[in-house]
Nucleic acid binder design. Sequence first.
RNA 1: GGCCCCAUCGUCUAACGGUCAGGACUCAGGAUUUUCAUUCCUGCAAUAGGGGUUCGAUUCCCCUUGGGGUCACCA
Length: 482
Amino acid sequence: MSIPKNPDIRVRFAPSPTGYLHVGGLRTALFNYLFAQKNNGSFILRIEDTDRKRYIPGAQEDLLKTIKEVGLDYDEGPIIGGEYGPYIQSERSDLYRKYAQELIDKGAAYYCFCTEERLEKLRNEAKENNTAVMYDGKCRNLSLEEVQEKLARNIPHVIRLKIPKEGSTVFYDVVRERVEVDNALVDDQVIIKSDGFPTYHLANVVDDHLMKISHVIRGEEWLISVPKHIFMYESLGWKVPKFVHLPLLLNPDKTKLSKRQGDVTVEDYLAKGYLPEALINFIALLGWHSSDDREFYTLEELVKAFSLKRISKSGAVFDVEKLNWMNGWYLRNLGLEYIAEKAKPYFEKAGLDISDHKKYLRVVDNARNRAVTITEMIAHSEMFYKNLTFSDEDKDIISKENTKKLFSFLIERLSSQENWSENEIKGLINETIGAVGVKGKELYFPLRLALFGEVHGPDIPTLIDILGTKEAIARLKSVLNA
RNA sequence: GGCCCCAUCGUCUAACGGUCAGGACUCAGGAUUUUCAUUCCUGCAAUAGGGGUUCGAUUCCCCUUGGGGUCACCA
């Protein structure tokens, strides 16, 4: 159980509690998890709650719950703690202030007293000129006296990075290899906001260093801010971690995966009855692929097969169709008892009395062969529990003279013994064809309608097996007497 | 628009510089089945364009085009 972890491999997933877990976030978490597991490293969970405006109470708990539900157990993080805690950024504020001060002392950062209005004006000007929006450096060279004086007068301020104007920053991303950015194009990023909280950039760098993170595995949207981060690492005299920027998850129209174009949170999918196994498997294949044609993996198998080297560079469209296919496959191929257990809350919520476990298992077994999600399984199961209702069209079929003869015959024969095996039912059907003189559609459609409420569906032996002889007879009688 | 990243079937992707460019999803057709579903089989479908380098480019280089990301006191 307690093989010592490799201290050279430490990765983290650092969501911010601003809502439910995004599927893109799940993919990032998964790749971090896989890389850590594969190399006997540590997978750390850190909550980045430095944005007080977007903070949503309860979101952190939801995040933790979802991560647990999909099985991505972390080695250090909230609740379980760890050697490098606390793992919630709002509890680490003094640390960020301390290092921001150190950056100022080293000439790598400065106080900025510019007002929101002035910044807004700058932004508008930049937009008009069609250039990148950048701080113009007004406060870059304030004298110590000026700074002291403004501070003394309690003028609102932020702390900005003092990015060098010359040269360029070159770094190597594990996925993208060499990336070079001209320093003159790197903005003097705010690292401490006027409310005293750090921005992502500072908090991230400080925590990654303090928590001894070896590989920063995150979405590609962060690639462009790496020079800012490197500037901080180097100014503070810290070792720069390896960067692994994952290709983005895309909407069908190829833009960054977002709401509006469908479900984006893991909770959405779980609520609809997608299985964690399918979700994990599907999402692992978005931006990563083994060298062979294999598509089905358990989490453990993913750990074995995973490699950063096989992460692709281009964005991947999140194709629900393929997820559907995969979820259906898991529904059909995982253990029946397991699926039944998973489906229980959904069935109960739908108001179905599933207390007869043997019947429930048969119902589930039937439904899982016909559904893509657990929610869909309900639609294939309700008729085994609820009273059937018939349309006029249905009634026409049921009330035909031949059909009545058919039902009468079957009621009588069925009543002759308690339990019928599926084979015996098959025999009975053949017997019926001879005795009543109906066959094919004439036989099966009305029969299925009476037992199941629909002309299409499971075959008759299965239907009777699920319902039980008694209920089958009752249903036949009910339509016969209607 | 500046900068950065990316580019194989509609989608996810495979292919030491030498393959009939492979697999999967979707779709179409067929087989099995009383029907539906499952399952199985078959088929449709791609190297963005142009230049190089090379005996030979999906693969290496350049340009073009296209797409995306980023440009916050959000992460």
